[in-house]
Amino acid sequence: MLNKKRKAYTIAMKAAMYISTGLTAALVIFLVAYVFVKGIPHISWELLSTKPSYISGRIGILPDILNTLYIVLATLIFVIPLGVGAAIYLTEYAKNKKLVGIIEYAAETLSGIPSIIYGLVGMLFFCQFLGFKTSLLAGSLTLVIMNLPTVMRTTQESLKTVPQSYRDGAFGLGAGKWRVIRTVVLPGCVDGVITGCILSVGRILGESAALLFTAGFAHALNGIFEGLTSPGASLTVALYVYAKEQGEFGVAFAIAAILMILTLLINFSATLVSRYFAKKREL
């Protein structure tokens, strides 16, 4: 039989593992439940479909929803070509190992920089230096830098799965490098781009600190082009403002519930997509 000391050790360690895992699970369940219970009753068609009005004392988050949507679209439009291009350079062109190392280190560094610093530099560079003022566009461009490493990495991963023999085959037929990339390499990175998009959308939806000083707080209702050049609060920033500065906790929780649902959807689709691609690769 195990001696007492070993038995005690095993029991203690097991207890620590169960408690830690249970605590984590309880935490997640509590967060989701609490946000839903507090938030869903406040979600109404009026809230979703109107803009706030001080005159009638009404609060509507349609502008914030649209702003978020504009930011997501604008960020993706810029970050996809840039990220994919960077990945193609790394896997197809770069021969110098040192340079590749530097680029990858830079990407790592970018993903480690806190959003508040992005917000600050975005404000200095896009809003002030390039003269975009506080606008959704400036916010989006800031987010482009933040998400560049993500799209680059996922694209790189998927390009690694394009067999070298495809490229050799195309080169063997006399195709130039650019043609090979267009016809053989680019189709191979669709998986990575989609995964990268999902991850980026998740990050954009959750981002607030980087948008505070670049995209601003306004709740004006705008079309996309007008919207991009004017300031506007995303859902997260709106949540912050309603909770911290106006004490409108009902609205804040409604937004939180919406964000929670979106997070769940994104996680779910990320799982689905990665499963689908894994299966496709097996075939």
Partner: peptide
């Protein structure tokens, strides 16, 4: 847990 926005 990783995906929940910090404002939440």
């Amino acid at each position: 847990l990783a995906g929940i926005p910090s404002v939440v």
